[in-house]
Design a protein around this nucleic acid. Structure first.
Lengths: 396, 396
DNA sequence: CGACTTTTTCCACTCAGAGGACAAAGGGGG
DNA sequence: CCCCCTTTGTCCTCTGAGTGGAAAAAGTCG
């Protein structure tokens, strides 16, 4: 099947496509209420979009007291692929044009196996989703990778945790394989876009999205747009110094936030506590699984284990210290906490909040919500779909 | 004399005015090279600007090998007032429409005397400048204040070092007194705008501008635009924790950067060193003046005083620690250091650089210049003039 | 002085878009 | 069930922004 070939011809059409994406099927009248165009002009542009096939008629709308209007919607056959490559897992999802997740596959995988192995996996997952009848093909794909990306070219640069990826032409290679346009970004930025599109950050212009997974990163949104920095490494807060003279970090410095709190650090601390006999709960979980992860710490904490709770609290405090600095600097309207450790839940959140509200000035914290992301593992893939749809729904 | 009443009628005219402001007198042909408009359209818009009086003819341009062209320039009678209110001084300058400083007055003054006293002083300085023949009146004024500002309304909010200013309607009051449009912003943001307009940050899209004066603040520029944050307090880095459990700060916390290094902290440290007999140089300066300031420390350091140099180095290291975090987070293309302590010069700069290059990751620091501002005390007033000219040279 | 450039003006033509008139379609009261 | 009102959709004309070509104006250079 031929996939989406058309692109909006002008800014008006782009605007309309994004409206239909974000608000779902709408009547021309509803569209007219939002786009400040004359009815005639609007009709012309909608007709043109219908001609391209990007938009199709969708029955009658409910009456608003007068003549009933005919709805239009984005082509129901459009499919986007959202790919979220984490340090230890790969998530792949299919969405429709409204970015609703139709199917989602997740697979543990070490990103250090290199781009070739990872993309083989991604392609087979995509094929499985297609085979299950969710999609006949993909009109575009967004890819998130756990490291800095030179955004215009879609190429990872100097990624610390993924050697072998440096300079790999992700965008081009996948575009070739999938036969559709592809955009690549940092996974944290995509999480931020996901939460902005469909999560807690709807309607917030400037916010931070802190993702605590294997490492720690921060998505920065300024005026509704992701800010990526001069070399694409903005938001790389894992190596900000949290504890002067603290633990040695893989980066060569001491006291980096990531060395003191992250999925990896937490697992290590839990292991140590279990082995030293400081926590019966963790020790029994270690005996059962042969290994410990942040999930075990979460479970132990939920079961009331004091050591586990302390580990989370201390980590939250460290994280809160760093976030407090960022809040003073950036003065966001919202801070979202997400990533693998959201399972640690409110213990973590409380520790972070306490520290931020204590350390930052009232003017910056006065009306500052600090909340958990609400999309969980979907945030990344929704953000990825959003990334490519933003691209495709822009004038060529 | 009637002042500038006209405003550009559309985006094209605004664009042209800004080009003339930034590039000086130009021929229509030169303008055409930069604005992607047809010759006819360009001629029409220039003619309209000439009619409004915002732009005037300015003789013949040098020939480029054919018919000589007639230059146009911004009206030479246009005058902007740039006001930079610091914690301990007030600077007022007049500029022409190209934002060249025609006259500059500086006066020590404690901002804590309150808005009424300060503006009395500002108005008398403005009157003096006018009386000296530099201006017949002002077409607009930009005001910088040392604290957070609710930008759209031009009102200081919760300023820590200037009690009595909270909520004072600076914009409205001064607009009334001066009889011209007024815009108000944080002094640090204006310094950043100044360096962007005429200083080291020309042609850099994303950069940080750290101002170390009585306090410490940071201007944030994203894509050529100042970022002010949700409540106008972005860049307030003076109260980021630099030394866990360090010195008590006026804000109620401990270890704030400002408590360890700033004009005020440096003066206090110098005084202590002098009184404890750790520095003969500083002691003699104290005896001579009865007081010490950062200027004395700079002089002592220049004279080779080890204690003074140590004070500067230590302060630079603290500042560098905080900046290193900001660099990791923001990934700027440039860091500008400015403010009263630039007199400390390269000793300070070297300490900051060392710390930042050591602590931030190579991808962020790889091509990151860290430099002193080049406009000195003019940065603030030029930025202020730029602020109001940006406003006036935008469609109404 | 004549050939070639560059700058500026003039003019006809295109096209996006606004906005009014009118037709179509539905709701609700008498 | 009819009539009036409201909302929606279509058609048509008018305006004004903007383009691009032609030609005039004003130089340079050999």
């Amino acid at each position: 099947m031929r996939r989406m070939t058309a692109r909006p011809a002008n800014a008006h059409q782009a605007r309309l496509l994004k409206l239909l994406r974000d608000s779902g099927p709408s009547s021309r009248a509803q569209l007219g209420d939002r786009v400040d165009l004359s009815r005639s002009k609007l009709a012309v542009e909608v007709d043109r979009l219908l001609e391209t096939g990007l938009v199709v008629a969708d029955g009658l709308a409910a009456s608003r007291g007068g003549r009933r209007s005919h709805n239009v919607r984005l082509a129901p056959t459009l499919r986007f692929l959202g790919v979220d490559i984490g340090a230890t897992s790969v998530d792949v999802a299919v969405t429709n044009a409204e970015l609703e997740v139709l199917g989602h596959l997740s697979q543990p995988m070490d990103v250090r196996e290199g781009p070739v192995a990872v993309f083989e996996q991604v392609l087979s997952m995509a094929a499985k989703l297609r085979a299950s009848g969710l999609a006949e093909g993909f009109d575009g794909a967004g890819i998130g990778v756990p490291g800095p990306v030179r955004f215009p070219e879609g190429v990872p640069v100097a990624p610390p945790i993924m050697p072998g990826w440096d300079g790999f032409p992700v965008r081009e290679a996948l575009s070739q394989e999938l036969g559709c346009p592809v955009m690549v970004d940092n996974d944290v930025n995509l999480m931020a876009m996901g939460e902005m599109h469909a999560g807690v950050a709807r309607s917030v212009g400037d916010f931070l999205c802190v993702k605590i997974g294997t490492g720690i990163g921060c998505g920065i949104v300024v005026g509704g747009e992701v800010y990526r920095g001069t070399t694409g490494s903005a938001g790389d807060i894992g190596h900000i110094q949290a504890v002067p003279g603290g633990r040695p970090c893989a980066c060569g410095n001491r006291g980096c936030l990531e060395a003191h709190f992250s999925g990896a650090a937490l697992a290590r601390d839990a292991l140590e506590a279990a082995e030293e006999g400081r926590s019966a709960e963790l020790a029994s979980r270690l005996a059962a699984n042969g290994t410990l992860s942040s999930v075990d710490v979460a479970a132990a904490a939920a079961a009331g284990d004091a050591t586990a709770i302390d580990l989370i609290r201390e980590g939250g405090t460290r994280t809160g210290q760093v976030i407090a600095g960022l809040v003073s600097f950036f003065n966001p309207g919202l801070v979202v906490i997400g990533g693998g450790v959201t399972g640690l839940g409110h213990t973590l959140l409380a520790a972070i909040r306490t520290q931020v509200y204590r350390q930052s000035l009232p003017l910056a914290t006065g009306n500052l919500p600090i909340v958990l992301g609400e999309l969980g593992p979907n945030a990344g893939v929704i953000g990825a779909a959003r990334l490519i749809s933003d691209h495709l729904f822009s004038p060529a």
